[in-house]
Amino acid sequence: MFEARLNTSQVLKKVLDAIKDLLNEATFDCSDSGIQLQAMDNSHVSLVSLSLRSDGFDKYRCDRNLSMGMNLANMAKIMKCANNDDTLTMKAQDNADTVTFMFESQNQEKVSDYEMKLMNLDQEHLGIPETDYACVVRMPAMEFARICRDLSQFGESVVISCTKEGVKFSASGDAGSANIKLAQTSTVDKEDESVVIEMQEPVTLTFACRYLNSFTKATPLCNQVQLSMSADVPLVVEYRIPDLGHIRYYLAPKIED
């Protein structure tokens, strides 16, 4: 028996919004410790890794490990039927071929349940290697989303250059070029608005705007985003989900010939 309950549906709606651009379907691996999802995007250039800890749920029970393959467009149809402040309960029997989403209104006067067929998806579990990154940047998630959106008007790629002084985002194309520099913030009193850089050595890497823009669909989940970069390895874009877990996106850099 698997049962996971959240006091507001909003969190799962946001999580789904953060992954459904990149993935058509995905397997939710449920165990005693929580729910994990790991999947390559449809074009196999980026990887999404989601972790929701069991202690972040308002109620969580998972008697046996369960892999639930879900069509995310169908899941989105169901989640659209929930109000943000509805209580959400996901339920499945052991070895079941369906999962049930139950939504309860705050006053308990409306209870809806939706049953969705599960899918058998071929999936590989990838080992994500422990990596020390040359640069780690923490910055406001809204600012990162804004920069990706603005720069994608000028080119298909964004160059991210990180030094001790700051981080620079650049794009160029037929219309011209654009550069946005963010300095490390000097005050720490507003943590959510700070730009913090931990640098071992400077890096300059190029990434496809399209994927960065998809990653920023996770912006409503958290105030800050963390970018971890090293030469020739995938960028990690991490959004922490307060009290529940995280979503990490891995994107391989473009290498000049």
């Binding site: 390559m40 074009s43 196999h44 250039v45 980026s46 990887l47 590989e124 990838l126 080992g127 994500i128 290697p129 496809a208 020739d232 390895v233 995938p234 891995y250 994107l251 391989a252 850099p253 473009k254 290498i255």
Partner: peptide, 14 residues
Amino acid sequence: NGQQQAILVYFFGY
């Protein structure tokens, strides 16, 4: 895309 896929394959070792 091929090169980016190759970097991912190498990094995750699959």
